[in-house]
Amino acid sequence: MIAYAFPSLAVFVVCALMTLGGALGVLLVRNPVHAALSLILSLFGVALGFLAQQADFLAAVEIIVYAGAIVVLFLFVIMFLGIDRHSHREVEPLAGQRFLAALGVGIVVLGVIALIASSHWVSGVPSVSTNGVPLAPGSGNITQIGDAVFTTYLIAFEATGALLLIAVIGAVNLARKERPRVGEEVA
């Protein structure tokens, strides 16, 4: 039995509890607002996991983008629509769906865990994205991410910019109220 350093062990345990607890909260809670709050807990757990694995920038982005923007958007829609404290119908339209879902998910997760346990990932192949420079420790990799995004992944970066613009326009168009145009006959 290898003894792991107590701080990293404690961080992992807290991270796992937050992540899985929040995820189970999303799954089990009836009220959608509470589900969104559980989602925030889970996202903070994931951010903690990022921090523990030297991804400082991503931990910050995780909290800002996910907890700060995406979950707020969820909450906004939930409150805007005023839905639905009453739960949906309990009858399953597909017989045994819950059981089949649990079975399928269980098989896949156990398979993945078995794969993780039996594989050796460290290949010794040098990094592609940074021309063989290894990941800098601590917050030093923020510079590396910036370099990689604006050199190796520049086209993908531009494409995501276009994607965000398209998404904004599409969302505005979708959520807009249908209104008869000026000069058009009201049917």
Binding site: A55, I70, S127, I145, L174
Partner: peptide, 30 residues
Amino acid sequence: FARTLSDVGGQVSVFFVMVVAAAEVTVGLG
């Protein structure tokens, strides 16, 4: 994997996944 393989490409991928997730949520909630 970015930590294990010491490759910053994994972290960059996460960055892109976050952007796409934000776009997806925007359209989906719309």
